[in-house]
């Protein structure tokens, strides 16, 4: 009887249930991050927990849509679906100042363009080297190497399969986590100790959580400079990769 009522609650209040579940995941993730003294890694941990749960659910149900294939958690399909995702991503553009773009100047623009192009090309080369032949798949994985947002946005725009989209998110998560871990270690070697280098760093790496986390662990004074350019990265990626990037890949492998 109790189980029936609970099932009924989760199915009729699907979206609310999903919000509660995500809040719980975030709470656990940030608690772990806090416990190991890496507060900035909270979001990366939360995403990893999400992916692990999706993996477990996938093994359990044999379905393709992770946790949302379990009836109780179907609301996650709405909360994490394309509609709300794109809506939230667009909102992050608020607060970006045109004059900040100008202030970051030529070097910021160069680092942004080089950064998006470089990560995309590296990701695409890896995809081709490991046997992907479909231009949509190659573009989506390349997009994932840009950020874990550009990957799924590109993948769903081009109609890639959920497997490939998951790969692209995984590639983006690897980038975000690695950026947070490596940055403080590699900073002295690459001269990451002044505002200009921090702006270039934000423009080249682009993963907002990775950049904020990495810079905070290196020198908190550099965070705004890196974040300033990094804010533009995902937007530029979502603009260029599914359009110009895909056309180039399709011309080569189409």
């Amino acid at each position: 009887m109790v189980a029936n009522i609970i099932t009924k609650l989760f199915t009729s209040y699907g979206l609310v249930g999903a919000i509660g579940i995500v809040a719980l995941i975030m709470f656990i993730a940030y608690s772990i991050a806090d416990a190991i003294g890496q507060k900035r890694m909270g979001s990366a941990f939360a995403i990893i927990i999400g992916l692990i749960l999706a993996y477990i659910a996938g093994k359990y149900t044999g379905g393709e849509k992770g946790l949302s294939d379990i009836k109780l958690f179907a609301g996650l399909g709405l909360l994490g679906g394309g509609m709300l995702r794109d809506y939230a991503i667009i909102s992050t553009a608020y607060g970006v100042k045109l004059e900040n773009l100008k202030k970051a100047g030529l070097v910021g623009v160069i680092s942004l363009l080089v950064g998006v192009a470089f990560s995309f090309v590296v990701g695409a080369i890896v995809a081709v080297a490991l046997g992907f032949k479909n231009p949509v798949d190659i573009t989506t994985i390349g997009a994932g190497a840009v950020t874990f947002i550009v990957g799924p946005v590109t993948g769903s725009a081009l109609g890639a399969s959920s497997e490939v989209i998951a790969l692209s998110i995984a590639a983006g998560v690897v980038k975000s986590v690695l950026t947070m871990i490596i940055t403080p270690i590699i900073a002295p070697v690459i001269g990451l100790n002044n505002p200009t280098a921090a702006m270039v760093y934000g423009g080249l790496l682009g993963t907002t959580s990775g950049v904020a986390g990495g810079l905070a662990a290196t020198d908190p004074k550099l965070v705004p400079y890196g974040a300033m350019t990094a804010t533009f990265y995902t937007g530029l990626g979502t603009l260029l990769v599914p359009s110009v990037g895909f056309l180039i890949i399709r011309a080569i492998f189409g």
Binding site: A18, I19, I21, V22, A23, I25, M26, A29, S43, A46, I47, I48, I49, G50, L51, L53, A54, A57, K65, G66, L67, S68, F73, L76, G77, L79, G80, G81, L84, R85, A88, F148, I149, P152, I169, V173
Partner: peptide, 9 residues
């Protein structure tokens, strides 16, 4: 949070 939900599906 939406990206976390997205990763879980």
């Amino acid at each position: 949070p939406i990206v976390v939900a997205m990763s879980s599906i």
